[in-house]
Each structure stands twice: as C-alpha cells, then as structure tokens.
Design a protein around this nucleic acid. Structure first.
Lengths: 226, 226
DNA sequence: AGAGCATTGTACTGTACAGTCTAGTCCAGA
DNA sequence: TCTGGACTAGACTGTACAGTACAATGCTCT
C-alpha cells in the first residue's frame, strides 16, 4: 500500500511479499491435501506466518483457494501448446512440436497434482472444472482441431473429422504418458521416453491421415535415438 | 447368523438386507460427495435407516467406505474388456470388439464417478489407487498388450512395442469419449458416437500397424452407418 | 526515542461430525 | 401374551476446524 519503497522491499527479491509466501505455501498444501484436507492452520504453519496474517491477506479459505488456483493456473499457461499450432513447418514437424509441447506440459509434478485436484474438487466447485475445461484441456483441443482443419483445407492431410482426429492425437500422446500418473502417483517420464512416445504418436497419426506417405520407411524406420 | 430362515427373509427379495440397503445408499452418497463430503448421518438418511443401525452393520466410516468400494468394484468387472482379447477373429474384428468393450465400460455414470473418486481420494487412501491401477486400468492395458504381442508373433500385425501400442489404442478410444466426462460432468456419449469413435480408433491403429493394408479403401472407405 | 502499522499467538465462538450410550419401539416366534 | 433381538431416535463426548477478537511484539520511517 505504501506508495514508495514499502517496508518488506529488499528490492522484492528472495522471500517476496508475505502474501506470496502464503500463496506458494497454500499451493503446496492444497495440491497435496485437497481443499477439505487443508486447514488454515496448515497453510499458516507451512508459510511460516501466523494464522491471523493469513486472514489478514485473504478474506476466507475459499478466497485463498481461488487466489491460489489463479497463481497455479498462471504458471501453467496452455499457451505453449496452443502457440505451436501456428507454425509453417511440414505437418510432421509441426505435429512433433505440438506433441512435445503437450507431453512436456505434464512434466512438472504440480501440473498433474493440479489436474488431480480439479477432478477431486469439481463436484463441490463446478466452476473450477468449467474453467479448466474451457481454458485448459478444451483450449488445447480446439487449437489442435483448428490446425488440422487448416491442414485439411490445404490438402496437406486427409482429415475428415478434425475434432475427432485432434482428440485421437492428444490421446496418442497422453494415454501412454499421463494416465498412470493421475490415478497412481507415478513418476514423470524421462525426456527420452517423452520424445519417443510423441514420435510414435505422430507416426501413427500420419499413417492414417498423411497424404504423401510420410512413414517413409515401409517397415519401421527412424527410431529416435535412444 | 440364525441358521434357518432368518427374520428379514421375505425370501430375500425386494429391499434385500438392511445391510445392502445401507451399502447402495452409501455408494450413491460417496460417489457424489466423496469420502470427506459424506457424513454417516447422510448415509443413514439416504438409506432410510437410523444412524445407529449403520454403526451396527459397519464398524466405522472407513469400514463402510471399504465395503462400498468392494460392492461398486464388483459391479464393474473389467473382465468384460479382458475376456474380449481371447477371440480368434481377424485383428480388425477383435480390435473393434475390444475397443467397444472399453468404450461401453465407461457408459454408466457410476463408472466415471468411481474413477473420479479414486483420483480424488488417492491421496488419502493410496491403497485404493493401487488396487484400481492393478485390477482396473492396468489389467485392461496388460490384456491388450498381451493380445498385441500374440499378433506380433503370428505376424498378423507389425507391432514393435506392444505395450506402447496398447496404450496408444486405449488412448485413441478413451480420449475422445472419456476425458471431458471426468473433468467436466459431461453426458455419456451415445451408442452411435461410441461405435464411430471405436471404428476410427481401429482404422487409425491399423493404418499404422496393419500388415495387409486393412484400410481397404485407399481414401476413406466404410464409414459406420450414421 | 516514539508513532504507526503489520505480524503474531492465544483465546474464544459456533459448527460439523465421528463415535458411544441408552431408552424406547417394533416384530417374530413360542 | 411374553421374550429376545434388531431397529430407531435422541442425547452426549470429544475433536477438528473456520472465523473473530484482542493484546503483545516487533519493524520502519521520522
């Protein structure tokens, strides 16, 4: 509030604001314990602040939760996936890039924990699920759909139903990499593994939808270097 | 306990045992509200029984939860998916059957609610996630993997990595049908939609892994009848 | 040093809930 | 009609927690 160089301003380095300390602590606790499993006491302890300070910064538990989600959401940015769809490369290269963006998106443990939490709390906070679907999953799907539609019009691919094809492509990438991590607490796949899965996803996808037979080698050509 | 025709035995028809009444009520409440969101009071109300009776039948809330899960689990039976993998039909027909079994598995609202709940409670009850992964998702994946391995050995398909291919196939089916339902509360897809998605999944899969070019029609052949 | 403000710990209120206890009710079978 | 066992309702205990009130303790800037 203080207009000039507020009290806690060590040039805002390191520990940043108390508020942010609390927020990052809250994100840790909420992500591991869920909404109902988290008490204000726990957040206070985790952040090193007093419980009263937490209430000083956030009107209620729900308010803290909302702001925490906003912070997490901000850090994720689906944009990295969406932006890859504008490229002017060959379909194969572009799909590799999009696929890698999708695969990399889920690498940080927090991202998976976030998904888990969205699913868990979607019953009690439907708007959370809505926004996730609209801006997350849905956005990615729409971007891929649009990209495929474009490729259809330029006859670069033979896609009859771009929406379904987009879902297929995402499924080819996500199912091998993600599904076990959501339900079980599996470890994030290595870079090599991710690259390989994406490579295979693109190969399979193009085997079906490619016009010029991209799958250059009739048998099983270029494995990505192990 | 009573050796002969116990008291509540209207030939055990209709309302069945009090215990079962409570269990089915509990499954409704747990599935919609989650573990922490469910109180013994709610279960009692929902089942029409007194709270004390609930405690009479189940030692604790956790015990009730476990038994409820066992009941739900029993009703689901992944066997329907696994058993389809033994067929002696052509790969195309077999894959269609397996794919349809997977797609149909998720039709009942309860199945999706169950998955949602497993994800939600997996933090607090890791053994729940474990058993789900082992006997549910994992079992299906293993069955498909084995089937593909077999096809590889008989040279019916050109599958280098049956495990990855199995995950791909499941992803081709599940992502278009399931992912939006888990996070959002979307409605179950129609039979027509399911058949179509599975058909497309098989087409894509075989375009990549088929030996004789199954995708008989070079362009886009047999659409399933709309 | 002193004023002002954020921070903090502690205590308090109200609520929700698991789990127990008890007294009363209903029903079957003798 | 009597007896025994299950069912029910209500009161009660103990705990956990959201949210508030308040008094004490710093820190910063002047």
């Amino acid at each position: 509030m203080s207009k000039s160089v507020g009290k806690t301003s060590t040039v805002e380095a390191e520990a940043s604001t108390k508020r942010e300390q609390i927020l990052t602590a809250a994100s840790r606790v909420f992500l591991t314990q869920g909404y109902r499993g988290t008490s204000m006491e726990m957040v206070a302890k985790e952040s090193g602040a007093g419980r009263q300070t937490v209430y000083n910064q956030f009107a209620s538990k729900k308010a803290l939760f909302d702001d925490t989600l906003a912070l997490l959401w901000e850090k994720m940015s689906v944009d990295r996936i969406v932006s890859r769809t504008g490229s002017d490369r060959s379909p194969e290269e572009a799909l590799l890039e999009i696929g890698n963006a999708i695969a990399d998106f889920w690498v940080p443990e927090n991202t998976v924990a976030f998904l888990r939490m969205v699913i868990a709390e979607s019953i009690h906070f439907p708007e959370l699920a809505d926004s996730f679907f609209t801006f997350g999953q849905g956005a990615a799907r729409r971007a891929v759909t649009e990209y495929l539609s474009m490729l259809r019009e330029t006859r670069a691919l033979e896609v009859l139903d771009p929406e379904l094809a987009a879902a297929q492509f995402i499924g080819l990438v996500n199912e091998p990499l993600l599904s076990s991590r959501v339900v079980d607490g599996g470890k994030a796949p290595s870079t090599v593994r991710r690259r390989r899965v994406v490579h295979e996803a693109v190969r399979t996808f193009l085997a079906r939808y490619g016009t010029d037979k991209h799958s250059a080698s009739p048998r099983h050509g270029s494995e990505p270097r192990r």
